[in-house]
Computed example of a mutant assay.
Amino acid sequence: MQEFDIQDSVKGIWDKLGGWLDSIIINLPNFFLAVIVFIIFIFIAKYVGKIFDRIFRNQIKQNSIRMMAIKVIKAIIIMVGFFVALGLLNLDKVLTSVLAGAGVVGLAIGLALQGTLNNTFSGVILSFLPEIQIGDWVETNGFAGSVTEINLRNIVIKQSDNNYVVIPNSKIVEEPFKNFSRTPRSRIFVNCGVGYSSDLEMVRDLTTKTIQDNFPQRGNEEVEFMYQGFGDSSINYVVRFWADVTKNRDILIAQHKAIIAIKKAYDANGVNIPFPIRTIDFKNSLNLDNKG
């Protein structure tokens, strides 16, 4: 009985191996076709990667962002080729299992790296935004400076005091920011005051002409002069004009130049810029009766 059992087991094994061999021989053309298709998709991924590399070089200045985007595109194409190859091998169940497993793994990774992925995707978004580029002068999250780097995790700003500030990408995407470099010209504000005895129309015309001579206006631009109110010792006004501004320093330079020009014009025409004056009135409320 034992000999018959051993013979039956051996025969079953050989039958099983024979069935596998037959399946391999039958599916051998599909196997070679699947391999060829997968290799073709790999070459397609490399070619498409080179094309997108040329496209991204003009749009993305950061190498890390550009290389990551190209790798993602290549990975997607190769994954498509892998799934097509599995379909040619009639491995539908394996394909379904792979997709299910990839979904579970992706969900777990996404939950574990939620903050990191948020900054990463924000970095990708920032790299494509024309509103912020390397070299732009921006104000955001309470900091102001020139953008020196945009990577997958953060943006680096060099402030006017030569210190660097590292801000997470998600903060830039979620919070408003002001970019001085997106417009070549900007409006400058200068506040001042003149004495109550001044000829207000003459002061207005003199100030407007002084600003126009030092800051030529273009197109529809104009110098705007408006009195704002009566101060403690002066009648206050604001003058607004346009100048070439791409960073905060340009604003300071324009204000500096305008203040010097206004002061010289006022000195030459006898216009007084009063400093705060406080009048102290001494009243003798003490009645001294020396009688008696």
Results as ranks from 00 to 15, higher is better:
146 S>K: 15
146 S>C: 13
147 V>K: 11
147 V>L: 06
148 T>M: 08
149 E>V: 01
149 E>I: 00
152 L>C: 04
152 L>T: 13
153 R>T: 12
155 I>Y: 04
156 V>A: 07
157 I>V: 15
158 K>D: 05
158 K>W: 01
158 K>H: 10
159 Q>G: 14
160 S>Y: 04
163 N>C: 02
163 N>S: 09
165 V>E: 14
166 V>E: 13
172 I>Q: 05
172 I>W: 07
172 I>V: 11
174 E>Y: 00
174 E>W: 04
175 E>I: 03
177 F>S: 03
177 F>V: 05
178 K>N: 04
179 N>A: 00
181 S>I: 08
181 S>K: 06
182 R>L: 08
187 R>E: 01
189 F>E: 09
190 V>G: 03
191 N>S: 13
192 C>H: 08
192 C>T: 07
192 C>S: 09
192 C>N: 12
194 V>C: 09
195 G>F: 05
195 G>E: 08
195 G>D: 14
196 Y>D: 01
197 S>H: 04
198 S>E: 15
198 S>P: 04
198 S>Y: 14
198 S>C: 13
199 D>A: 09
199 D>C: 09
200 L>K: 14
202 M>A: 14
203 V>T: 10
204 R>A: 11
205 D>F: 10
206 L>V: 07
207 T>Q: 13
207 T>A: 15
208 T>Y: 05
209 K>T: 09
210 T>L: 11
210 T>W: 13
210 T>S: 15
211 I>L: 04
212 Q>D: 10
212 Q>I: 02
213 D>K: 06
213 D>F: 03
215 F>T: 00
216 P>K: 01
216 P>G: 05
217 Q>V: 01
220 N>Q: 14
220 N>H: 08
221 E>T: 01
221 E>R: 02
221 E>S: 04
221 E>G: 04
222 E>M: 09
222 E>D: 13
225 F>K: 06
225 F>Q: 08
226 M>G: 03
227 Y>A: 05
227 Y>R: 09
227 Y>L: 08
227 Y>E: 08
228 Q>F: 06
228 Q>K: 14
229 G>H: 10
229 G>P: 11
229 G>A: 11
230 F>C: 01
230 F>S: 08
232 D>C: 04
232 D>A: 10
232 D>H: 06
233 S>H: 15
233 S>K: 08
236 N>R: 15
241 F>A: 06
244 D>M: 02
245 V>M: 07
246 T>C: 08
246 T>D: 09
246 T>H: 12
246 T>G: 08
247 K>L: 03
247 K>R: 07
248 N>K: 14
249 R>N: 11
249 R>F: 12
250 D>W: 01
